[in-house]
Design a protein around this nucleic acid. Structure first.
Length: 335
DNA sequence: AAACCGGGGTT
DNA sequence: AACCCAGGTTT
């Protein structure tokens, strides 16, 4: 049996990258879950240090369920998209209370677990024979069969195909092999088809049209925002507010910030600089100001400089503080 | 600096 | 199906 499926598995057995979580796999759904949620936005290299810190602090679902949201967010800091951390926290609490899901349908009832993550955890940790279709698999599929659909349609066809082809004895390895191929060989740009274990069955390659698949999605316009933030200092402390539910960076700390011209509930202070923070479709032009505060000030919580690394903080909030601190160093008269 | 990537949730 | 979430990598 040397069809492309066994060629792919053999390649995976030989060439798979080592990842710290792969040693924890095959019987620990929690380890798989953590790694999959972390990997949702970013790449393996970026996730590794976070995964190791996370598993040292929260080695089991029970340990994570018992932790406070504050500490969970703090350990997630730097990974972004913090709702993933809140969902994981909530999901783990559900599992600890009611037991581990045993099917994809049950996994999908857990907050933060959708089609892909349910398939990944079920197949890798529990041996359930289900596909796990991420962007890598969609790309491999669209090239393999020259499918030019995009979006939901591409995902549906890829899921159908993947589901018909999962290796019933090694579903987790098979899913990982497909994703690994997309991540390391069948890459979005400059794929290395010369190293592809299944090149001979790739329709796009035979046609010399690999670069045309998958078809690009129509791009949306940027949303431009102009915000101003005031960094309040008092001695060796900085005054922060916690973003409320429903606001961006909800639950994280940051200096008061708002649209230019809006009432921040604090004096506007003096200009120290500006930078741009880009996220998804949004470009935020952020004007940074600083303010020396003498007495009390309603609504602010004061953190010592030395403790700031431990505070779960929004990315632009941290950049603004750093900018304001640098400005203070350049202008010692302001201290 | 712009383009692109990506999975889950909501409406 | 479109949009929100509110970060990262590649080019």
């Amino acid at each position: 049996m040397s069809d492309w499926r066994s060629d792919l598995l053999a390649w995976f057995d030989r060439d798979q990258r080592t990842m710290p979580w792969r040693k924890d796999f095959h019987s620990d759904p929690y380890a798989v879950w953590v790694s999959e949620v972390m990997l949702q936005q970013t790449t393996v290299a970026a996730v590794i240090p976070f995964y190791e810190r996370w598993m040292a602090r929260f080695p089991t679902a029970e340990a994570l369920a018992a932790a406070s949201e504050e500490e969970v967010l703090q350990h997630w800091q730097g990974l972004g998209y913090y709702s993933r951390a809140r969902n994981l926290h909530q999901g783990v609490r559900t599992v600890v209370q009611f037991g581990w899901p045993q099917t994809v349908k049950e996994w999908k009832m857990i907050s933060g677990v959708g089609d892909y993550t349910a398939g990944a955890i079920g197949s890798i940790a529990q041996g359930i024979v289900v596909p796990a279709v991420d962007g890598n698999v969609e790309r491999v599929f669209s090239r393999r069969f020259m499918v030019s659909d995009t979006g939901e349609k591409l995902k549906r066809f890829a899921t159908f195909w993947a589901g018909r082809n999962v290796d019933p004895h090694r579903p987790g390895d098979w899913n990982q092999a497909l994703m690994e191929l997309g991540a390391t060989v069948c890459t979005p740009k400059n794929p290395t088809c010369g190293r592809c274990p299944v090149a001979s069955s790739c329709e796009a390659l035979q046609a010399g049209r690999v670069g045309e698949f998958p078809a690009p999605k129509p791009r949306k316009d940027w949303i431009e925002l102009e915000h101003v933030t005031v960094v309040p200092f008092r001695g060796d402390r900085v005054g922060l507010v916690q973003a409320k539910r429903g606001e961006w960076w909800s639950g994280l700390w940051q200096p008061p910030r708002g649209e230019v011209g809006a009432d921040l509930g604090i004096e506007i202070g003096e200009f120290v600089g500006r930078f741009k923070h880009v996220v998804t479709r949004h470009k935020i032009q952020l004007e940074v100001r600083r303010l020396e505060v003498e007495g009390h000030l309603d609504g602010l919580t004061w953190f010592e400089f030395a403790d700031l690394d431990e505070v779960p903080m929004s990315a632009p909030g941290r950049r603004a503080i750093n900018l304001a601190l640098e400005a203070s160093l350049r202008l010692p008269g302001l201290e």
